[in-house]
Amino acid sequence: MTVPVLQINQVSKRFGHYQALSDINLTINQGDIFGLIGENGAGKTTLMRLITQLSPLQQGQITLLGATGQHYQQALSHVGAIIESPAFFKKLTVAENLKLCAIQHGLPASPLVKQTLAFVGLTAKANTKAGHLSLGQKQRLGLGLAILPQPDFLILDEPINGLDPEGIIEFRQLLKQLNQERQTTILISSHILTELYQVSTRFGFIHQGRLIQQLSKAELDEANQAGVLITTSMVAQAAQILDQAHYKSLQVLDDQHLLVQQVDVNPAQINQLLVSAGVAVTAINQRAGSLEEYYTSLLKKEGRQ
């Protein structure tokens, strides 16, 4: 059963004459890693600020963990967030910042600080002043502060900005770990779409203050024809063999190409299966779904409308 963590209904936001958000409707379910995609000024941060009440709601309704109105503040205690940039006291050490966070939430500091330091990989930097950390380490500390109270819902606004490639990979692993081990639902925005594709299970595209599309990763992959592309002169036979072997979503593209629209299959196994059945395979390639391509084509469509 899907349990909604966040429901946004008809939310609009205006700054003077500027319409920042228009009639946003969005639902994020428990366990989702929801990637929010949009160009600068599209309204991603504004939406996140509305959810966290850092910006007053003007129109519409937001339900967080089943709570609205007076109970919303209570629900916020189950949310961790990094909005715009991680905030911490620069003159306190990493461990002191985390302990301060534990005190603020009325939580026992001793086990949580240690666990969080280990989780975000900052144990070695525990006694370093936060102001002396590298950009990547600051992002980790920001994440540590957000996850220390063990939130059910994590909101991350551009958390991988400025991270080096190694840092990005580590950050991705941290998010997946949080989602899988602690069942934390995550709303994340990023300009690095390849990274967002790697980590997210659902996507929302926001353009000029409007949420123009929401779709799951499977839907995105289908739209992008992601999967394993087989080149062979015996397409019909290959399709029959794979069908009998219970491969799903087989698509004959032309008389030379067959697409297995599944991203979690092993091309080597397919190759072995076909060759052993006497099908000559000319080429076999893993085709990744490109979020950039999909996003660009979506924007072009929007531009035409």
Partner: peptide, 12 residues
């Protein structure tokens, strides 16, 4: 240092 954001995104 914008740390009030951390504080206000809590039960307080």
């Amino acid at each position: 240092q914008s740390t009030y954001k951390n504080t206000l995104i809590s039960r307080i």
